[in-house]
């Protein structure tokens, strides 16, 4: 009984994560939201810019998820001359939206 319950919980959690990754992908690509392709190459996405580094192997480059969230939320904290918009600090994206984007970036 307990095993069945655990399996169900895992499956449910997996489903939720999948949904968050899908939502994160939409937010990453949406021109009115993350619009990350404007500057970053991502997974062969069309018409990507090249003013910023390509996004790949994100899990190994940012093993601490919090650091990736912080980089998107306020990149100025790490580099005051960066041209990357402070997505959280300036309210371009909500904290939950940034977390969803990070879930998607972790799949790259």
């Amino acid at each position: 009984m307990l095993i069945v319950l655990l399996l169900c919980t895992n499956a449910w959690a997996g489903g939720v994560l999948e949904q968050r990754v899908a939502a994160g992908k939409r937010l990453t690509l949406d021109r009115k939201m993350g619009n990350c392709l404007a500057c970053h190459a991502i997974d062969n996405g069309p018409f990507s810019g090249n003013t910023a580094p390509p996004l790949f192997s994100m899990k190994s480059r940012f093993p601490d998820k919090k650091k990736l969230v912080a980089q998107i939320s306020n990149p100025l904290a790490n580099n005051r001359d960066t041209i990357m918009p402070p997505f959280g600090l300036h309210g371009i994206l909500t904290e939950d939206q940034i977390h969803k984007i990070v879930e998607y970036l972790y799949t790259l």
Binding site: L37, C39, S48, G49, N50, T51
Partner: peptide, 11 residues
Amino acid sequence: CHVASSGMRIR
């Protein structure tokens, strides 16, 4: 955009 990133692409 027009000094540091000039010559590069946005989209």
